[in-house]
Amino acid sequence: MYFESMVVSVIAITDAVLPDMRERGWGRIITSTSSGVVAPIPNLGMSNALRLSLVGWSKTLAREVGPDGVNCNIVLPGRIATGRIQFLDEKKAEREQRSVEDVRAESTGGIPLKRYGEPEEYGNVVSFLASEKASYITGSVIRIDGGLIASI
């Protein structure tokens, strides 16, 4: 079930659009996964593993379709200020009987930029990768995390 929704669905959408991209000699496949592929997130073993399979798939695809003018990249969002992050902060606050503000402060405290990313900041990176200006970027994994992931 999880494999179908998290992996097979992404590959199926790509399979649907890729032939036209190859025929035109230009295209961009940008797959958004999770920072868990670089620094596994505790208690999300299945998610970490399945999302990592998308990294391997994308890297393989980049080599296969690059000669046809199609670039493939992966973006790894960190803590982006979305409704989902708000929900997760609220649930953690509820579980730990703390204020949402305290949970958020703790979370942003571990981010070198000391804040959550804005959806527009995430969108700017994806927009760049989709542009002609990113014509020599393919097979890459790009973090959009405010420096959260400590590894190189």
Rank of each mutant, 00 (worst) to 15 (best):
L88M: 15
T31G: 01
K92F: 08
P19I: 11
S5L: 11
T138S: 15
R143W: 13
V70F: 07
P40C: 05
I13F: 07
I74R: 04
I29W: 04
N43F: 12
S35I: 14
S58N: 12
F3Y: 15
V70E: 02
I111Y: 05
A16K: 11
F128D: 05
V125N: 05
R104L: 07
G117N: 02
A150R: 12
Y136Q: 12
L76Y: 03
Y116F: 08
D89N: 14
I74D: 02
K114D: 05
P40I: 09
E96Q: 03
I142S: 11
A81H: 10
S127Q: 11
L113F: 15
Y116N: 06
T31I: 15
T31H: 10
I149P: 01
G123W: 03
V100I: 13
S107N: 10
A16N: 04
G110A: 10
E4P: 02
N73D: 04
R22P: 01
Y122E: 01
A93E: 01
E96T: 13
V7R: 03
S135I: 08
T82H: 08
S32G: 02
K91N: 14
S131M: 00
L52M: 10
W26Q: 14
L18H: 04
M6R: 07
V38R: 09
L50R: 07
G69W: 12
R84D: 13
F3Q: 15
P19Y: 02
Y116K: 04
G117R: 00
I137E: 06
E132I: 03
F3V: 12
L61H: 00
S151D: 13
R104W: 03
P119A: 01
R28C: 04
T138W: 10
P19T: 08
N124A: 12
D15M: 11
E90D: 09
T14E: 00
G25M: 09
V126H: 02
L88G: 12
R104D: 13
P77Q: 07
P112V: 06
D15E: 15
V38S: 04
Y116Q: 04
V7P: 07
Y122T: 03
D102H: 00
R84Q: 13
E94I: 09
A150T: 08
V103G: 08
V126Q: 11
N73R: 06
V103T: 12
Q97Y: 06
V70N: 00
V75W: 12
N71H: 15
G123Y: 03
L129Y: 05
R143A: 10
P19C: 09
E94Y: 06
I144F: 09
K114Q: 14
V8P: 02
S107M: 05
I29E: 06
L76R: 02
D102M: 00
A93F: 05
G56A: 08
T60C: 14
R28P: 03
G109Q: 00
